[in-house]
Computed example of a mutant assay.
Amino acid sequence: MTEPAVPDTTRLAAASLAAGDPTGWFEQLYAEAGAGTAHVPWDVPRPSKLLAEWARDAAVTGAGRRALVVGCGLGRDAEFLAGLGFTTTAFDISATAVRTARERHPDSPVEYAVADLLDPPPQWRGGFDLVCESNNVQALPQPVRDRAIAHVGPLVAPGGTLLVLAAAATGTGTAGPPWPLTRAEIDAFAVPGLTPVRVDELVDADDPLIRRWRAEFRAAG
C-alpha cells in the first residue's frame, strides 16, 4: 500500500524548524506553489467562513474605519474587508505571498505589505479599528507563538475590535502545522487594554471532532 503523501505545509515546516527558523517555511511554501511544486491549502477564492459570518451577523461596516489583516497570505480576507468599506492594510512575512496578492488583485485598494508579526512596524501600534488574526498564529510553534500573540492586541486602536479565528485544540495531537490553540492561548490575546466580548468554540457541522475558535475582543476607548 502506498503511504499517504506528507502535506507540503508539514514537510516544509519540519525542515524549517529543524534549521532553527520557525517562520521561514511560509516563504518556501509560497515560492514552491508559484513554481507549481507545492500546494497552499488555504488558497481558496472566498474569505474565511467564520469571518464572513461574523461580519454578516454583526452587520459590520467599514466606512471611515481602518482594518489590518495579520498574515494575509494571498489576500482573500483582506479583499473581503475592503469590500465592506474598510481602509485595509494586509501583511505577510512572505514576500512571494504579498507579490502574488498584488498580482491577483491589481485594482485593489488594499495596502499589501511585507512585515513580521514578531516585529511589527511601530507606526502600526494602536492604529486599526479592526484587527483580524485568522489562522496565522496557529501555524507557529512554541515559544514563538507566545511572542506572536503578545504582538497582536497592541495593534488595535482605542475602541477597536480584535477578531481571532483559529483551530481549537481537542486533545488529539497531530503533526502540524497547524497546531490548534488552547483556550488559555485564546485568552492570552486579551493584553492590557483589551476585554473579551465573546469567545465561541464552534463545532464543525460535518465533523464533530473539528472545532474552531472565534473570539472577539474590544479595546478600551
Rank of each mutant, 00 (worst) to 15 (best):
84 L>I: 10
195 T>H: 03
168 A>F: 02
56 R>Q: 15
97 A>N: 04
12 L>M: 01
141 P>L: 09
137 V>Q: 01
155 L>P: 05
145 R>E: 08
92 D>P: 05
161 T>N: 07
38 A>P: 00
202 L>P: 04
104 R>Q: 04
79 E>T: 05
13 A>S: 15
10 T>H: 13
84 L>G: 06
44 V>S: 06
140 L>D: 06
42 W>M: 07
45 P>L: 13
125 R>W: 02
110 V>K: 07
88 T>S: 03
163 L>S: 07
213 W>P: 07
16 S>Y: 05
35 A>L: 14
121 P>M: 11
167 A>W: 11
163 L>M: 05
158 P>S: 12
172 T>Q: 12
44 V>A: 14
55 A>E: 00
106 P>L: 12
100 T>H: 07
143 P>G: 10
48 S>I: 00
19 A>Q: 13
66 R>H: 10
188 A>V: 02
29 L>K: 06
221 G>W: 01
130 L>E: 12
18 A>S: 07
8 D>F: 04
104 R>S: 00
36 G>E: 13
7 P>M: 11
50 L>P: 01
220 A>C: 07
59 A>M: 08
103 E>Y: 03
218 R>K: 12
183 R>K: 12
117 L>R: 08
24 G>P: 06
159 G>H: 11
102 R>W: 06
91 F>C: 01
141 P>F: 10
5 A>R: 15
135 N>Q: 14
22 P>I: 09
207 D>T: 09
8 D>I: 04
49 K>I: 14
68 L>G: 08
129 D>G: 10
18 A>P: 05
206 D>S: 14
186 I>N: 05
68 L>P: 07
